[in-house]
Design a protein around this nucleic acid. Structure first.
Length: 953
DNA sequence: ACCGCCGGGTGCC
DNA sequence: ACCGCCGGGTGCC
């Protein structure tokens, strides 16, 4: 991966400046360990108890002590462990015989026994009060039917060391300093009997770790250079690197290899990391991570995979319209005579709102570019490739099934037998993607699948989506969004997507499931599928933690359970353990393919992108503007200066942001200035409420990409506290719930209550800027217009993106665009999927009469957004985060771009914008040099320094 | 469990 | 013998 903007959250202890004024830890243990009700299965209990209980913070990774204990009751349980194997200790407060019970399970979650009750008593206290986590390794496996020793190691915060030791001592147990060999993981299973000292001998330095981490996803293409031609149904010719990806993906899907870290040894299957041995072959992991850089054609490759590898490298059996190589048509699912329902302009892709009877509905084409060729209405249907189809059917290529008969199977594709691929008759591929790329997928299917082939693609989206499991199972492809999936999953009324046995599930932009607590992540994990793929340009965004969910999705045992991931990979790596890192590298390498734009195939560049040049155009404010700007700046400085003096900059953070936003807005256009509400007395409750709504709106629209200080993730369901700090609603509610009446704001320690949280009312609250008669221009708008006019003069076919963080600025720009007769379109976050897709399509169409300018809001659309029709970008206002700008440029500077890309950034001279550029540079240097700091208080501290620089205080 | 523990049977050497 | 000793029954939490 590119070593830029990644800031892995590794060992901040060594890097983080500590700020005493904000040292209150905003991290809370959310799981009430005693509150496990009713009858739970073992796996549920494990899941609950290992769920994000904060154990992955380095501070909590101190070894507190070790002791040998006894596992008893072996004869009552089926779970087996062997010599050197890791076990999990799980509290069982509901146990009717002993509420202190601690059960012992093996890596696969099967119960092995219990900890002897005398030891369980103090352990239960330690575990329940979260004083330490306890991990076990069985030193010699079972030697008799009744009990065996277990080496227990306590891990936790340094500050809890005393408490843990005391508690154990009170019960007559003295914690020692460790065991030979089993305190950390064994080195690839070869270090079973001590001798482990050399592993921990020289921990990796932060620098080494960072480098290793950055390179984790680099060069994952050795031995992955075999090429494979796609099935005939794909009409686009694949680039060499795409054929390689297709070959690799196909082999991953058809692989009979053991998953990473499993070995076969004298009739047993043996996991070299956990020392787990089983008789049964561990389940295959069919799939992996395609982590190519954006623009290398992950979508096309995936489409090729879908039609090319049904089973064992045989293509998906598809129907072909006779003698209609170029015309498009749609075939009904079961009844040929109903083809007369077809609208003449429909495409060959059967999709959208096909109902249970297979009658396509008239409005089937909502988001699609309609195929302009006349529909072919011939009835005859033959198979694209009878031989391959027969092979898929019978697993014996000698027998050719008559075409007519096979065509009948259209409605009963579920019956297609496994064909030796180990399949269960599953046919359909489910693609889950962010809304922003939904239409891109549809376009790409349209574009890359031969027009005379019937690929059944169903868009499972919209209020009238069909929930028939049968219908969904019979598709070739079902396309849906993370939102639809999780809302189906959340509404208890049985999600049809979770009832289908998928052949393949593909997660586009798969890194979005990185938060394991999010509903959408849970929904994803519940999907049934034979093969699983993650497509992602940025498989790791912030830290190793992100990878855990990916392993969990791929069902890569035992890493799909948090405790094992933490013990075997995450903790060793974050602590600088070389073996841990090596294991991580092996793991990633085995399941990932990643190429970047700079990767080389046989010494040649993978893709040759046109040049990309960035110009900064300095804008001078007019005298009048300058005067007004200085006015606003002076006021702002006065206020912010006062906060600094009073030391209240933290509590007034939202106000400061508001002032900055005002300045930035002013640089763009005087009319953008919103009403400013100061930090005076709260006044009446409704006044306070209004003020808070104002503040949260400003914070969220400030473009500063605020994060929730609790989950460190982007804000979801943002709410603002009375002390004016913004969090995710679920996060802050959890804090309040766990702290009860004493709940305090994690950032400023003010008292908080659930009913005092104020919601973000949404975008549409702001007053519209003056776009009517009293419209006036600004220096920046003038600069833009003169650029656009000049461009149009030189080459009227050139298309441009005009990017801003302020949608109201975009409103203002619309006025002169119209005045000068520019044809333009617009894309911002508030647009519905339909209009959004239309805007993109309109803009990408280069035939005359289509827009040449797109007004684009900086963060609209995801990474997948493809705007290659544009070759010029006008960045109207600088962003806090240079990576956000880069990502925006990449929307047109990507595969498919044929012209050199010119980027113009407008920066107002002697203004907050110039200071922002300086900060951008500094940030970039920081990111390049070492770890970015991710602790919330440090983030805030950094922001305060930024404010100082921005306001020149 | 080739243990520990319990409780009934038993009782000089 | 209100003991000791023996040997069978028994056994996670």
């Amino acid at each position: 991966m590119q070593s830029s903007n990644k800031s892995p959250n590794i060992n901040p202890r060594t890097a983080a400046p500590h700020n005493p004024s904000t040292s209150a830890s905003p991290r809370y243990a959310f799981i009430d360990f005693l509150d496990v009700g009713g009858t739970m299965t073992i796996s549920q209990e494990i899941a609950n108890l290992t769920e994000d209980s904060g154990q992955d913070l380095p501070e909590e990774n101190v070894q507190i002590g070790s002791i040998q204990g006894t596992v008893v009751g072996l004869r009552y349980y089926t779970g087996k462990v062997s010599r050197g194997e890791m076990v999990s200790l799980v509290r069982q407060p509901q146990n009717p015989y002993d509420q202190n019970a601690v059960m012992v399970t093996n890596v696969y979650g099967s119960q092995v026994g219990h900890i002897k009750k005398e030891l369980a008593a103090p352990m239960a206290y330690v575990m329940d009060n979260n004083l330490a986590r306890v991990e076990g390794v069985v030193p010699c496996g079972e030697t008799n039917k009744f009990s065996m020793p277990v080496n227990l190691t306590f891990w936790g915060k340094e500050e809890n060391r005393e408490a843990v030791h005391n508690q154990m001592r009170r019960h007559g147990f003295k914690l020692g300093t460790g065991f030979k060999g089993y305190t950390t993981q064994t080195s690839l299973g070869r270090d079973l009997l001590g001798l482990s000292s050399k592993m921990s001998a020289i921990p990796l330095t932060v620098e080494e770790l960072k480098n290793a981490f950055d390179r984790l996803f680099d060069d994952l293409m050795e031995d992955k250079t075999r090429e494979m031609e796609p099935a005939e149904a794909v009409c686009t010719s694949l680039l060499p690197h795409q054929k390689q990806a297709l070959s690799w993906m196909t082999s991953r899907e058809n692989s009979n290899d053991l998953p990473p870290f499993w070995e076969e040894k004298s009739g047993f299957y043996f996991n070299v990391l956990t020392n787990f041995a089983v008789k049964e072959r561990p389940e295959k992991v069919l799939g992996g991570i395609l982590a190519d850089d954006m623009g290398l054609g992950k979508t096309l490759t995936t489409i090729a995979l879908i039609v090319s590898n049904f089973h064992n490298g045989k293509p998906l059996p598809l129907e072909q319209c006779e003698g209609s190589s170029s015309s498009s048509r749609m075939k009904s699912t079961s009844k040929d005579h109903e083809e007369s329902y077809e609208p003449a302009s429909s495409s060959h892709l059967k999709r959208l709102h096909a109902d249970e009877e297979g009658v396509p509905q008239k409005k089937a084409k909502t988001t699609m570019k309609t195929a302009k060729k006349p529909a072919n209405t011939k009835k005859g249907v033959v198979l694209l490739d009878d031989v391959d189809f027969a092979a898929a059917l019978e697993c014996s290529s000698s027998q050719v099934v008559p075409a007519k008969k096979s065509a009948k199977k259209g409605s009963g594709t579920g019956k297609v037998p496994s064909g030796g691929g180990g399949g269960s008759g599953a046919r359909a591929t489910l693609i889950v993607c962010p809304l922003s790329v939904l239409s891109n997928w549809l376009d790409q299917f349209e574009q890359h699948i031969r027009a005379d082939v019937t690929l059944k693609v169903y868009l499972y989206y919209g209020a009238d989506r069909k929930r028939s499991v049968k219908l969904l199972s019979e598709q070739d492809v079902v396309l849906t969004t993370y939102n639809v999936l999780s809302s189906d999953f959340g509404n208890k009324a049985s999600s049809p997507l979770h009832k289908v046995n998928w052949l393949r599930v593909v997660l586009d932009e798969g890194h979005v499931i990185r938060n394991p607590n999010a509903l959408q992540s849970k929904a994803i994990l519940e999907l049934q599928s034979e093969r699983r793929w993650i497509l992602s340009g940025t498989p790791i965004q912030n830290s190793l933690k992100d990878l855990y969910m990916l392993m969990s999705f791929l069902k890569l045992k035992p890493f799909d359970v948090k405790e094992w991931w933490n013990r075997i990979i995450q903790r060793p790596v974050t602590m600088g353990d070389r073996v841990g890192l090596q294991n991580l590298q092996v793991l990633v390498k085995g399941i990932t393919l990643r190429r970047t734009k700079n990767s080389k195939v046989a010494g040649r560049m993978l893709v040759q992108l046109p040049e990309r040049r960035v110009f900064v155009q300095h804008v001078t404010l007019s005298e009048e503007e300058r005067e007004e700007y200085e006015q606003v700046r002076k006021e702002g400085r006065k206020i912010v200066g006062r906060y600094f003096e009073e030391g209240t900059i933290m509590t007034n953070y939202a106000d400061v942001l508001a002032i900055l936003v005002r300045l930035r807005q002013y640089c763009c256009h005087p009319s953008l200035l919103g009403k400013y509400t100061g930090a005076d007395d709260p006044g009446t409750p409704s006044e306070l409420r209004e003020r808070l709504i104002n503040k949260i709106t400003l914070v969220l629209n400030s473009g500063s990409d605020e994060e929730c200080a609790i989950c460190l993730d982007s804000l979801r369901q943002p709410v603002i506290t009375y002390c004016a700090h913004v969090y995710c609603r679920p996060c802050i509610c959890e804090v309040i719930r766990s702290e009860k009446e004493q709940a305090r704001c994690p950032l400023c320690r003010a008292q908080i209550k659930t009913k005092e949280l104020v919601e973000y009312p949404g975008e549409e609250m702001q007053a519209g800027a003056a776009t009517g008669e009293n419209w006036r221009s600004s220096s920046k708008v003038d600069a833009l217009m003169s650029n656009l006019l000049k461009l149009r003069n030189e080459d009227p076919t050139v298309k441009s993106l005009v990017v801003s963080q302020f949608t109201r600025f975009m409103d203002l720009i619309e006025v002169p665009l119209r005045e000068y007769g520019f044809s333009f379109t617009r894309l911002d976050g508030s647009m519905a999927q339909k209009t959004r897709a239309k805007a993109i399509q309109d803009f990408q169409d280069s035939s005359p009469g289509h827009p040449t300018i797109m007004l684009l809001s900086l963060k609209a659309g995801g990474v997948g957004l493809n705007l290659t029709a544009a070759s010029h970008v006008f960045m109207m206002d600088p962003a806090w985060n240079p990576a956000a700008e880069d990502q925006c440029f990449d929307r047109c500077h990507r595969l498919g771009q044929s012209r050199d890309v010119v980027i113009t950034k407008f920066i107002v001279k002697d203004s907050v914008e110039e200071n922002m550029v300086k900060i951008q540079k500094k940030k970039q240097e920081l990111v390049d040099k070492a770890f970015g700091v991710k602790k919330p208080q440090d983030l805030k501290q950094a922001r305060i320094e930024e404010i100082r620089a921005l306001m020149e205080i």
